[in-house]
Structures are given as structure tokens and as C-alpha cells.
């Protein structure tokens, strides 16, 4: 079995299994913790607060937005760019269609894909640079944050290197990094991709039940 066969075959399926079951285990674990029973009479809807809390956090408030505009722009740029590349790049759609879904969907043109990737890269670099340039961010960041960022960056960069589609080694390197990323994902803060709605929802539900206007 060649290296490319290994990373696209057995290792990929193991990594994907760890990713799916690990992420499910984490999310279910958080949900199972539950919330402390609130015996005060409700003044509003906790369920509505859950949804409003999730939506409201997409739009930071006035002065907070002004002070952290670069973080917001970088964050949106990176995440939207990453989703764009992940879900609409032709090689990714072909891979997902072939290995997972069995069907495909429209893909970005090459120029659109390149611009999307550039936005994602710039956003990620800005976010990481802020992490060590801002004294507060540096203080609250640990190895997990840096490992998650660098794994994501290297996975993206190796994908960029393989864009020529002329080298099996480059494609295999990209797949290897994706496999490592999938395995690491459930055990670190990369899990925020699946847990952010729970934390935002919890805050929203608490305030919603108290009748606060989010």
C-alpha cells in the first residue's frame, strides 16, 4: 500500500471516525451536564433566549465592535473563507462526493476558490498574530490554541501547495495533515465549531428566562 493510499484510505477512515464520534461524545457530554434548576418564576422564554443569544452574538455591540473590529473582520474572513474552500472547492467536492455523499454540487470557479482561500489565509494569520501581539490574548492563550491554529494553517497551506495537482506527494501531505487535524479536532478548542452554539445559547437562555432584552 502506497503512502497516498494509506492516508486517503485506512488513516482517513480512522481519523473521520474519531472526528465524528469524538465530537458527538463532547457535545452530548456537554448537553448531559444540563443546567442548574432555576426555581425563580420565569419572566421570559428561555428557548427564545437560546435562539436570540445565538443570533445576537453574530453582531457585536457598538463600542465592543469598534474596539475589536480587526478581530471581527479576521474572524469572519477566516471562517467564511474556510467554509467556502472546504465545501465549494472542486477537489473537495469531488472527494466528498466520492467518499461520503455519493452526490456532488456546484463548485467555485478557480479564481473564486483562490480569492476565498486568500481571504481565509489572511483572516487566520491576522487572528493568530493578534493572539501573540495582544497582551491579554497572549495571557489567555495556551498550547491548545496554538496547535489548533497551526494545524489548521498547515492543512490549508498544504492544500494550497497541492493546487497544481501534479504531485502525489503534495496531495498525500495534504491528506495526512487533514487526518491529523480530524483526529485532534474533538480533543481541543477546535471543538468550538460545534460547541459555540451551546455556550451562546446557554447565555441567551439564562437572560431570556430573566426577561432581559438581548
Amino acid at each position: 500500500m502506497s503512502f497516498i493510499d494509506f492516508v486517503e484510505g485506512p488513516l482517513y477512515y480512522v481519523a473521520a471516525t474519531i472526528f465524528v464520534f469524538g465530537a458527538l461524545w463532547r457535545v452530548i457530554g456537554i448537553i448531559r451536564i444540563g443546567r442548574k434548576k432555576d426555581i425563580s418564576p420565569p419572566k421570559g422564554s428561555a428557548a427564545l433566549g437560546f435562539f436570540k443569544g445565538n443570533l445576537r452574538h453574530f453582531f457585536p455591540r457598538g463600542i465592543f465592535a469598534r474596539r475589536t473590529w480587526l478581530h471581527i473582520v479576521g474572524g469572519y474572513g477566516f471562517h467564511l473563507g474556510l467554509f467556502g474552500v472546504l465545501l465549494f472547492a472542486a477537489p473537495h467536492v469531488a472527494f466528498i462526493s466520492d467518499r461520503i455523499t455519493g452526490f456532488s454540487w456546484p463548485t467555485l470557479p478557480r479564481w473564486g476558490f483562490i480569492i476565498t482561500a486568500e481571504i481565509a489565509f489572511l483572516g487566520l494569520i491576522v487572528l493568530w498574530v493578534r493572539r501573540f501581539s495582544d497582551p491579554v490574548m497572549r495571557l489567555i492563550s495556551d498550547w491548545d490554541d496554538h496547535i489548533g491554529t497551526w494545524l489548521t494553517f498547515l492543512a490549508m497551506l498544504s492544500g494550497c501547495f497541492a493546487l497544481g495537482e501534479s504531485s502525489v506527494f503534495l496531495r498525500a501531505t495534504h491528506m495526512l495533515l487533514i487526518d491529523i487535524w480530524l483526529i485532534y479536532f474533538p480533543f481541543g478548542r477546535l471543538m468550538h465549531a460545534f460547541t459555540f452554539f451551546l455556550s451562546r445559547g446557554n447565555t441567551g437562555a439564562t437572560y431570556g428566562r430573566k426577561g432581559m432584552n438581548l
Binding site: I114, A117, E118, F121, L157, C160, F161, A162, L163, G164, S166, S167, F169, L170
Partner: peptide, 15 residues
């Protein structure tokens, strides 16, 4: 050389 050059070319064009 060809692998590194191919990777570098793509990276250079994108960045």
C-alpha cells in the same frame, strides 16, 4: 526539486 517547485509556485501565486 519538481515537488518543491510545484508547491512553491502555487503558494507564491496564492500569497
Amino acid at each position: 526539486n519538481s515537488t518543491l517547485t510545484s508547491a512553491s509556485l502555487q503558494g507564491h501565486n496564492l500569497f
